[in-house]
Amino acid sequence: MENYEINQRNFEEEFTISPNGFLFDHVSGLTYTLNKTGLFILRRIGEKKNASEIVMEITEKFEVSQERANVDFQEFLVQAKEFGVL
């Protein structure tokens, strides 16, 4: 599995993420609401985990196939990049 490429943003300084999935971008001032999967993925990205690790963890946490987990992960990346979060 290929790893992902994202803008180098400082997660600790630039974002506030609540346990409920409320995300505040301190640079743009924009807010987002993440679902459980999105929140799970973003936290793993913040921990600098690679794509294989994240997909594997999604598979275990949400009890879905690896294929489904990969699709969810890729879709999240596309959306987050589109919104300028990643």
Partner: peptide
């Protein structure tokens, strides 16, 4: 620095949030 969150019909900020954009 502040991002406007809500505007009146006259374009005045009615809600906003401080940001930190270098």
């Amino acid at each position: 620095p502040m991002r406007k969150l809500r505007l009146t019909p006259k374009g005045k900020a009615w809600a906003g949030v401080t940001i930190l954009d270098k």
